[in-house]
Simulated scan of single mutants.
Amino acid sequence: MLKSLKHTAFGVLAAMLMAGTAHADITVYTAGPQNLIDKMAAGFTAQSGIKVNVFQATTGKVMARIEAEAANPVVDIVISASWDTATDFAKRGWLVSYTSPNAEKVPDFLKSDTAVAQGVSALGIAWNTKSGTPKPAEWADLAKPEFKDLVNIPDPAQSGSAFELTGVLGAHDDFKVFKDLQANGAIIAGANAEALNPVLQGAKAAVFGAVDYITYGNKAKGESIDVIFPASGTVIAPRPAMILNLSKNQDEAKKFIDYMLSDEGQKMVAATYLMPARTDIPADRPLISDLKLLDYDASAIYGKREETLKKVSDIFGTN
C-alpha cells in the first residue's frame, strides 16, 4: 500500500513538473505574406515547441479583428504593414516594451522600445513588360495617353502602405497626379494583390503604388512583370512586429520576436523578396540604400487620414 502511494505521489509530481514546463500557444495577427508567416511559425515551433496560431489578412482587416475582440483579446503579436500602427498602439499604451538581443543590427529607424520591423517593403510601379506600353519612369507617366484605362491603384483604405504613398504624393501636389490618373481611366482596385492580378493577366498594364515584394515574387516565377522605382522618390513601409500588453503569453511572444530576428527568421523574410530588417542579411532585390526616398512627416500624413481617404473617394467616385 505504501509503495503504491509512493508511485502515485511520484506520478502526480512528474505530471506537475511537466505541466510547469509546458508552453502556451501564441497567436499572431499579420498583414504580411501568408507563406512567410507559415514558414516562420513552423520554424519557431520546431525550435521552441510553442505552437503559433495565425490570422493573416490586410492591415484593415487585422485592425478590424483586433477592435472586434477588444472585450476578449486573444492576439499576442501583431505584425502590421504600416509603422503607423506601432506609433498608434504605443500612444494608446497597448504595447509591451521589449528589445530583442537579435535586434542589434536592425537600424534605429526600424525599431523602438515597443516595436521592431520584421522586414521592409517599398512602393513602386508594377509594369507588365509585354503590355505594349512604354516603360514608365515616373508616377505621372501612368497618367499619359499610352496608359489610358490600363492602370490600377491599390485602395488606400485597405492597404496601409498604399495609404502612406497616397498621403505623401497627395500632399505634394494637392492630389493632381490622382486627378490626372482618374481622368485617364485609372481605377481603385482593391488591396495590393487584387490590384496586381489584372496586370499579371494582361488585362491592365500597370499598378500605381504596388507593394514591391509581391511583384518581385511573381517575377521570380517567370511572370512578365517588373518593378520601377520612380527617380523622383518613393516611400518604404517597415512592417512592425509588436507584443500586446494584454497578451497572457508575453514570454513566449518575446521568444517569437527573437526567432523572427534570428539569422533563420530574417533569411525567410529575404526569401519572400521583402528587405530584411537586419542590415547583415543579404537579399536578392534593391535595398533602402538603393532607393530615392521622399521626405515627409509621417505623423502629419496619418493625422489627415480621414481627409485623405475622403479626397481619394471623391476623385475616384468610390463613396
Rank of each mutant, 00 (worst) to 15 (best):
S121C: 10
D76W: 01
A143I: 11
T59G: 05
I26W: 00
D84G: 14
V12L: 14
S48W: 03
I288T: 14
A220H: 12
H23P: 00
P198R: 01
D297T: 09
G167R: 02
E194T: 11
S131W: 06
K254M: 05
A270I: 08
A126R: 00
D258C: 08
A9W: 11
G160L: 01
V269T: 12
Y296C: 02
D38V: 13
I243G: 01
D314L: 04
L246H: 13
F256M: 01
T133F: 07
G93Y: 06
A210K: 04
K130M: 10
Q34E: 13
K219V: 13
D212Q: 12
A19P: 05
F256E: 00
T279D: 09
N53E: 12
L165Y: 04
N102Q: 14
A140T: 15
V168M: 03
G190S: 08
E194V: 11
W139C: 11
T114I: 07
I26D: 00
I125Q: 07
A140C: 06
V211A: 12
G190L: 08
A231C: 10
A115H: 11
P136G: 07
A270R: 09
A9H: 03
V74N: 07
L13S: 08
D284A: 13
E146W: 07
P156H: 01
V235S: 08
H172Q: 15
V151L: 04
K292E: 13
R239N: 14
K255S: 12
T21N: 08
D141Y: 12
K39C: 02
G209Y: 09
K292V: 15
V116K: 10
G303D: 03
T129C: 07
P107N: 08
S299Q: 13
I188W: 04
K91I: 06
S161A: 15
A41V: 04
Q47L: 13
A171R: 06
G233T: 11
Y29E: 01
V199D: 00
A157R: 13
A22Q: 15
N128G: 02
D173H: 07
A71W: 05
V52D: 02
I50A: 00
T272M: 11
V269Y: 10
L274Y: 11
K255E: 12
K148I: 07
D108W: 10
G233F: 12
F89G: 00
N128R: 13
S80Q: 07
V207Q: 03
V74S: 11
I228N: 03
L287M: 12
G60A: 15
W139L: 07
I188K: 04
A283D: 05
A195S: 08
E252R: 01
A126M: 06
F10A: 15
S289G: 15
Q158D: 01
T30P: 02
P73W: 11
I228E: 00
A271I: 14
G160I: 03
D149P: 09
S232G: 15
P136S: 09
D38G: 03
L95C: 06
A90T: 15
K105E: 09
P33I: 02
